[in-house]
Computed example of a mutant assay.
Amino acid sequence: MKTLRVTTEAFQGADGIDAFREIFGREILGIEIDPLDGHPLDINLTLRSLPGVAMAAGTLSPMRNRHTSALLDNDDVVLVVMQNGVGEVSQYGRVATVNEGEAVLTANGAEATFIGRTATRVINLRLSRSLLSSHVAEIDDLVARPIPRDNRVLQFLAGYATMLNDQAALATPDLRNMVASHLHDMAALLLGGSGGRGAHEQGLRAVRLRAIKEHIRARIGHHDLTLANVARSQQISESYLRQLLADGGTTFTDFVLAGRLARAHRMLIDPGHADRSISAVAFEAGFGDLSYFNRTFRRRYGATPTDVRMGAPRADGE
């Protein structure tokens, strides 16, 4: 996962700020940056990139950011989540005040202005228009229209975006693709607003369940993986977590066991892990009891771990 920190800390004096505005403002962020009302320019953002998704999260001093015609280079959309402070977005002839906890959609393909009236903390999610357009009709009609802070999908989306801070959980391309897809699903749910309350609730439960399963899969080998820890990480109750998994036709114990057995099986048939003992494979897959591992593995695959390993291709081709 590509990560870049954007900060004014190393840029001092008028020449330094001008260099920052050129390099990070125009070339990287694609905006004209102007301090507001004499406030010194103070920017501290972390940029992260996933397939089809980019996120900028951090703090901004009061400023005016302009997306001018000369800087237009794509037609993606950006969801601005105002974690702290107050901002104002102007685009398509509409002006929207965005208060703390609210969000607003902007379009990269048209001129726009963002004014941070106060020091702000924001999460900006750049999303693929093409991926959203098949689920959300008339996206541009939703631009510069505030999304209230009590919107449950917005609350969940803002919390879920912090997963991008967990480099270990996103260490593989498959996980990065899943998270990027999940972010687009949540954004589509947030922006769609069709189907009535029942469909809205059903969609929210579906994206929550996907987030839970992704979280568990990313930590399947951790020996401290418990229902309580997962519920806490997802900011939901343990009973709600059990209910969501039940809706998906499984339980926490069964889902974790299946994931750990699958991980052990992959290791046993991988010549690159041939030097590991069966007990080491079991431990790395998340099992603490070797006899339990052997018993459940044989029940799942109809063979012992040793049988599976002996039947796997050898690294030397023999």
Rank of each mutant, 00 (worst) to 15 (best):
S130H: 15
S130L: 15
S130G: 13
S130V: 15
L131Q: 15
L131P: 06
L132P: 00
S133T: 11
S134Q: 15
S134P: 13
V136F: 02
A137R: 15
A137W: 10
A137V: 14
D140E: 15
D140S: 14
D141R: 05
L142G: 01
L142N: 00
V143K: 02
A144L: 08
A144H: 04
R145F: 08
R145T: 14
P146E: 05
P146Y: 08
R149C: 10
D150W: 08
D150Y: 12
R152H: 07
V153T: 02
Q155H: 09
Q155K: 11
F156I: 01
F156S: 02
L157M: 01
L157F: 00
G159E: 10
G159L: 13
G159H: 15
Y160V: 02
Y160C: 00
Y160S: 01
Y160L: 08
A161T: 06
A161S: 14
A161I: 04
T162D: 11
M163W: 15
L164N: 10
N165W: 08
N165C: 11
Q167R: 10
A168P: 04
A168K: 13
A168V: 12
A168C: 06
A169H: 05
A169D: 08
L170I: 07
A171L: 12
T172N: 06
T172E: 09
P173A: 03
D174R: 11
L175K: 07
M178H: 12
V179G: 01
V179K: 04
A180V: 03
S181V: 00
A187T: 06
A187G: 05
A187I: 03
A188T: 06
L189D: 01
L191W: 03
G192K: 00
G193F: 00
G193T: 01
S194Y: 08
G195Q: 10
G195P: 06
G196C: 04
R197T: 06
R197C: 02
R197Q: 05
A199C: 09
H200E: 10
H200M: 12
E201F: 03
Q202W: 07
G203T: 00
G203I: 01
G203F: 00
L204P: 08
L204N: 12
L204D: 05
L204A: 06
R205F: 05
V207H: 02
V207G: 00
R208G: 03
A211D: 10
K213Y: 11
K213D: 05
I216H: 04
A218D: 08
R219S: 07
G221S: 07
G221I: 03
H222L: 14
H222E: 14
H223K: 05
D224C: 11
T226A: 05
T226Y: 09
L227G: 04
V230N: 03
V230K: 02
A231D: 07
A231H: 07
R232W: 04
R232F: 05
S233D: 11
Q234E: 15
Q234A: 15
Q235N: 14
Q235A: 14
S237Y: 04
S237F: 04
S239R: 14
Y240T: 14
L241M: 11
R242F: 09
R242C: 14
L244G: 12
L245D: 01
A246Q: 13
G248C: 12
G248F: 09
T250R: 12
T250Q: 14
T251A: 10
T251E: 11
F252T: 03
T253F: 08
T253C: 04
